[in-house]
């Protein structure tokens, strides 16, 4: 039987992995975006799990919206990435510090 604890732990591991990914791949914007997708997936895991174990459908509705936002985010993020690459011939994060204070 899959308990709530199982799902939450799995989601925590996924979340931690994505966080680690952000550190490890700190130069590559593309991988950073992927890590964010992974992070959102772990959040979705929590929503689905709670939704099911509480017997409420609303959590799944939120997953639906998160998917929407994530899709929009990755579309725009990738678009920016493409434009960026055209300008700089690079997706190295360390080159992208124009906003540095």
């Amino acid at each position: 039987m899959i308990t709530l604890g199982h799902m939450l732990t799995l989601s925590a591991v996924l979340f931690a992995l994505s966080v680690a990914g952000i550190f490890i791949n700190r130069r590559n914007v593309l991988l950073l975006l992927m890590c964010i997708e992974l992070l959102l997936l772990s959040a979705n895991f929590n929503f689905v799990a709670f939704s099911r174990y509480l017997g409420l459908v609303d959590g799944e509705v939120f997953v639906f919206f998160i998917l929407t936002v994530a899709a929009a985010e990755s579309a725009i993020g990738l678009a920016i990435l493409v434009v960026l690459f055209r300008e700089r011939r690079s997706i190295n994060v360390e080159d992208l510090n124009t906003l540095r204070g």
Binding site: V19, R26, R27, S90
Partner: peptide
């Protein structure tokens, strides 16, 4: 070029991962 410095912060990433998992 993107792989440079990969290992330098890897330990930090794993450490944070471990802490976050443990805490959650």
């Amino acid at each position: 070029e993107l792989k440079r410095g990969f290992t330098r912060y890897a330990w930090l990433g794993w450490l944070v991962t471990a802490i976050v998992v443990a805490e959650i």
